[in-house]
Simulated assay, not measured.
Amino acid sequence: MEITFLGTGVAIPQKGRVQSGVLVSLEEKPLLIDCGSGVLSRFPDAGVSHTNVDTVLLSHLHLDHVADLIPLLKANWLRGKTDMRVYGPDGTEDWFSRVLGAYEYILDGVDVDVIELSPGKEFTPEGFDCEITCAATDHSVPTLAYRVTAEDGEFVYSGDTAPCRDIMDLAVEADLLIHECSFPAGTKVTNHTTPSTLAEMLEDYNNEIGSICLTHFYPEMRGHEKEAIHRLKDYVEGEIILAEDLMRLEL
């Protein structure tokens, strides 16, 4: 299993970081998790054709996680790829139909199946040999974390969230937890994570999580990366990794 970070940033522009998107290669078949602005343009740099993507998981519907979904659908359509499955939390179907409905010239030419998910749901996406489990997060809108379990590894993607037990429980014995870390320690923030608030949650888990990869960095995190590693390194068996755009991890 190969994980490529297409975007590790947020809604505020930053040099070298576009908005959220993670591409997972499962036996060479790509699964895209989130599709924020700039993610589509990362495909050539990642050496992956966008037309290979026919399955997308959305953690939630904030723009920095969905803004390039319709552009991806259009890019595929322009190359003759018209089918797609989109999984997401409650409200995804209504949001998708409203946005796509503004583009009638695409609407009749594509075949998109939207599947809404709820916390606790377990499913296998069509065409994949893996199991995905959903959990609720602590964010300002309905948001899902995902655990992807395949023959060669298991990882959890937190989506946007304050640290919460549902995600930590989902990540127990996983090889990797991809967790947002929006702001540096000491920042007063709700709905998001700092190294300190994540460490406080991890104290109860006795190194039950393999490695942690931090992502979803606001500009305020620049210069505080080493502090984050130092704050968290005693709470996991493996590494603390700082995600960068186009970084690849192998499980």
Results as ranks from 00 to 15, higher is better:
A11H: 09
P44R: 13
V110S: 09
L117F: 05
A75P: 07
E225S: 07
L144N: 06
L170C: 01
D68P: 08
P142E: 05
I3F: 06
G186H: 07
Y105N: 11
K15F: 10
N207D: 09
H216W: 03
E244S: 14
R85V: 15
N206V: 11
A162C: 05
I70N: 05
L249K: 04
L26Y: 07
I106R: 01
D34S: 13
K233T: 06
E131Y: 08
A174N: 01
T197L: 01
R147F: 04
T4W: 11
A162N: 06
R79W: 09
S140Y: 11
R231Q: 13
D129L: 14
E250S: 11
T82H: 14
S211G: 00
I70A: 04
T193C: 08
D175R: 01
L40E: 06
A150W: 05
P13F: 10
I132Q: 05
T149N: 12
A174E: 02
S37M: 09
D34N: 13
P13T: 11
P163H: 00
D54V: 10
W95Y: 15
D54G: 12
A228I: 06
G238E: 00
F123P: 02
E27D: 15
K226D: 15
Y105Q: 09
E250D: 10
T55L: 04
T215S: 12
S118M: 06
D94T: 14
L242C: 07
D152T: 08
L246N: 14
